[in-house]
Design a protein around this nucleic acid. Structure first.
Ligand SMILES: O=c1ccn([C@H]2C[C@H](O)[C@@H](COP(=O)(O)OP(=O)(O)OP(=O)(O)O)O2)c(=O)[nH]1
Ligand SMILES: [Mg+2]
Length: 800
DNA sequence: TACCAGGCTTA
DNA sequence: TAAGCC
DNA sequence: GGTA
């Protein structure tokens, strides 16, 4: 690429910075609705005959767990990965509002759940001027007492919709033609975040598709759109980009904006409101225009004095908070990377069963996903396109025919990734021997069509270049940060996608500089491709820069660090104005776990040196042996992967030839009691109280002489399930998910107790049939059956 | 438009 | 059942 | 966010 071209591109990005309003829209939250994943956790319960418990909103039954997600918003960060989706967030609250019996219709652009209200009502006026103290409860009643969707719909039909009464109709989305009649689907009342609002857009037209969409969106949310200034305008929404307050005033020919008018950038304001299902405080910095003196009050707002300064303070909230913040334990457990363990890694590596089972899976040559031509002529789109097509045709289907549908990533993550991570927890990767056994024969029929696509397995080859040599290091690094950010945001799937994209980028041997080039790679779509190009050219990603300066981030992160606090709760608290742990103690009702989490915030956030992890393990082991010498205690988790420090202590406890229930008695009762008596155990955070099948104990422990409480996890594993338990408890999390996905694709199911076959899943979702046990005792065999080359624990570090 | 792991405890 | 956690 |  010539310098000129580079410059041009760079200039382009700069320009975009200013102008961009256009199709950043791809991000708009209404473009994706997620389904709750594990909404119904207990799969064990007998699978009901039919529709009783589908998890997706396929039909009747449960609430359609569908809600918006969004691209950017707060930042936050915790040591642990929180994959639990934010998706669930809203669906929940609605459950409280009313049981689910609404029908599930599906709209491409509107949230299905009437989630908003709880949030919405919970937040408004809190502070000083409690003008209209509508309690959440009362408001809830007010709004929902009668109203299934149908009610509001019916009414809408009878009456002229608000947006038509008070505003004008935007053009049709599609071709920009005038809309004839109310064909905009307005949300049910209870979901109308912008209900009754009158919005003025700037720029003041609906010419651009992007803006048109926004206008439609606010109408759907219950607002009306006007193009003529009126005194009853409540909101002015500005395109993102660098429109300034003064420009706006000039446009309006006004000296100032009425104090009661809310001025925000549509994005991120509206998307975030949707995300959190509530009207956010528009005065927050990220919603304001560059030179705006102050934003307006929210909604009907209490009469706060409206000087710019007061707004500022409103945003900062009481100073009290700041003080408190200071005193609060900071404890930013900078999670040190799981680092090189002093190769205590006992992996005695057995290695070597030379039974080199030659099998069809072992695809010799990596044929390396060589990036096609890429750099040859970066600008020849036709060429690139051709390459892509060629690939699509030849490379992929190769010999497959079905390919058993194993996807590259899975195999990659599981089988290969190691190289990049290996150094992470394991000093010296021992030369391992890979061998495997074809598993197909084990799974009956359909599920796994005989042979899996070889091309898929070629990716198994760990031949990837060392990460340091990768020419895309910078890109990977930045995307990695984005990935981390999304993960913290609880955006599970985006995180997933980033990981995949990054993984393929890692394998490239040449630098990827253009979007076209990047787009050819598997798991890199347009959006990632654009980001890659931007990074390559500017060495920065605007989105990340933006995202990083979010002031709310710290608080959110602080709250997320509390054991027992997830995104839903953290967001509520942040939004309620809490800033410190003390705030929470004073003002919020906490669960038992959360209380402990706050009381020992610093303790739990601190990393645990490997030696101490070992000491905890030893302590438990000693006490247990005294009870019954046949018990075995194995330290798992990051420790087993060789980490130099850990976030907690994970122990598997087992006794050969002993049933779970017996072990439970001994361990959960005798052992735990004794450990408590000795002052080693400090608290129980979670354990099975219900008789049947509990195998975990979660709590905290403290070594004699130490003051620091540590998170301790005990897992009981019957001897016959040790293999599966080892895999599970060794992790890491990403590795586990990959393994399980792989199993799934092969018609099997992998969990902490075994690998099963012939699993029936209902319409590609919930497990209907638990399947038949294939293997559970032998860790290695499980790998083999799955066709995954053995990986030492230290090689299972997959997180980015 | 569905899928992206699977399962358990708490409230 | 939602939320959180492993 | 990407893929089927
Ligand atoms: O969502 C999860 C979380 C954890 N695990 C498994 C893998 C993990 O290795 C093990 C122990 O969990 P823990 O949270 O202790 O993670 P870790 O790998 O031990 O890391 P850390 O050092 O933070 O404890 O449980 C999962 O399968 N899924
Ligand atoms: Mg651990």
């Amino acid at each position: 690429m010539s310098d000129e071209e580079l410059e041009a591109k760079a200039a382009y990005f700069k320009e975009q910075d200013l102008i961009e309003i256009s199709d950043d829209e791809t991000d708009f939250p209404d473009d994706g609705y997620l389904n709750i994943e594990r909404a119904l956790a207990d799969i064990k319960a007998m699978p009901p005959p039919r529709h009783t418990r589908q998890r997706k909103g396929s039909a009747k039954g449960t609430v359609p767990p569908r809600l918006t997600r969004q691209t950017r918003s707060f930042n936050g960060s915790t040591a642990k990965q929180r994959i639990a989706g934010f998706e669930a967030q809203s669906a929940k609250q609605q459950a409280n509002l009313r049981p689910n019996y609404q029908r599930v219709s599906r709209s491409a652009i509107t949230p299905e759940n009437d989630v908003a209200s709880t949030f919405r009502s919970a937040r408004p006026t809190r502070k000083g001027s409690a003008s209209s103290p509508v309690t959440p409860r009362s408001r809830k009643k007010l709004k929902h007492s009668t109203s299934p969707d149908t009610a509001s719909e019916a009414r809408t039909e009878r009456e002229v919709p608000f947006y038509m009464r008070m505003g004008i109709m935007p053009r049709e989305l599609k071709n920009g033609k005038d809309v004839k009649q109310a064909d905009i689907k307005v949300e049910p009342e209870h979901k109308q975040l912008l209900r009754g609002k009158i919005v003025y857009f700037y720029p003041n037209n609906d010419l651009s598709l992007a803006r048109r969409r926004r206008i439609h969106k606010i109408i759907q949310l219950g607002a009306a759109w006007v193009t003529q200034w009126k005194d009853d305008v409540t909101h002015v929404m500005v395109d993102d980009g660098d429109y300034t307050f003064s420009q706006l005033l000039k446009h309006l020919d006004k000296a100032d904006l009425p104090r009661n008018v809310v001025l925000v950038k549509f994005d991120p304001y509206v998307p975030q409101c949707i995300q959190f299902n509530t009207l956010l405080d528009p005065s927050l910095g990220r919603f304001s225009l560059k030179d705006a003196p102050k934003p307006g009050p929210l909604t009907k707002a209490p009469e706060l004095p409206y000087s710019p300064t007061s707004l500022v303070s409103l945003q900062m909230k009481p100073s009290r908070r700041q003080l408190a913040t200071k005193s609060s334990q900071k404890t930013n457990a900078e999670p040190s990377k799981e680092g090189f363990a002093p190769l205590l890694v006992a992996t005695k590596n057995t290695s070597s069963p030379l039974e080199v089972v030659e099998d069809s899976f072992v695809m010799p040559s990596p044929d390396a996903a060589e990036e096609p031509a890429g750099r040859h002529s970066p600008y020849n789109d036709d060429f690139l396109q051709a390459v892509k097509e060629t690939r699509a045709i030849s490379h992929l289907p190769l010999d497959e025919e079905d390919s058993g549908t194993l996807d590259n990533l899975t195999v990659n993550t599981i089988a290969q990734d190691s190289d990049c991570e290996t150094d992470d927890e394991y000093p010296k990767p021992s030369p391992k021997r890979r061998n495997k056994i074809s598993s197909n024969s084990l799974v009956s029929k359909s599920a796994t069509p005989k042979r899996l696509n070889k091309s898929v397995f070629k990716c198994i080859d760990p031949g990837t270049k060392s990460s340091s040599l990768n020419p895309n290091t910078r890109t990977i690094q930045i995307l990695g940060e984005m990935c981390k950010y999304h993960n913290q945001m609880g955006d599970q799937w985006r995180t997933f996608a980033y990981r995949r994209g990054i993984a393929t980028l890692r394998k490239q041997t040449h630098k990827i500089t253009t979007a076209a080039q990047a787009g050819l790679l598997p798991f890199i779509g347009t959006r990632l491709a654009e980001k890659i190009e931007e990074i390559a050219l500017t060495d920065h990603l605007r989105q990340l820069d933006t995202t990083r300066n979010d002031p709310t981030a710290k608080t959110l992160r602080r709250f997320l660090g509390i054991y027992g606090v997830g995104l839903t709760q953290a967001n509520k608290w942040v939004q309620a104005g809490h800033r410190t742990l003390e705030d929470l103690l004073e003002k919020e009702k906490l669960t038992e776990g959360q209380k402990v989490g706050i009381a020992h915030y610093a303790d739990f956030a601190a990393r645990i040196p490997r030696a101490e992890v070992e000491a905890h393990g030893t302590f438990v082991r000693d006490v247990l042996k005294r009870i019954d010498g046949a018990y075995q205690v194995t330290i798992m988790g990051s420790y087993r992967r060789g980490a130099r420090d850990s976030g907690d202590i994970d122990l598997i406890i087992s006794k050969p030839g002993t049933s779970l229930s017996t072990m439970r008695k001994v361990v959960f009762h005798k052992l735990v009691a004794q450990l408590f008596a000795q002052g080693f155990l400090k608290v129980t955070l979670a354990t099975s109280h219900r008789s049947n099948d509990g195998s975990k104990w979660l709590g905290a422990s403290r070594l004699p002489g130490s003051m620091i409480w540590r998170r301790l996890d005990l897992l009981l594993a019957p001897e016959e399930e040790m293999g599966a338990a080892l895999i599970y408890f060794t992790g890491d999390e990403v590795f586990n998910r990959s393994m399980r996905l792989l199993a799934n694709k092969k018609g099997m199911r992998l969990n902490q107790s075994g690998l099963y076959k012939d699993v029936m899943r209902r319409k590609g979702r919930e497990t209907l049939n638990k399947g038949m046990l294939l293997e559970s005792r032998d860790e290695k065999r499980i790998f083999e059956i799955l066709g995954v080359p053995w990986r030492e624990p230290s090689e299972r570090v997959c997180s980015v």
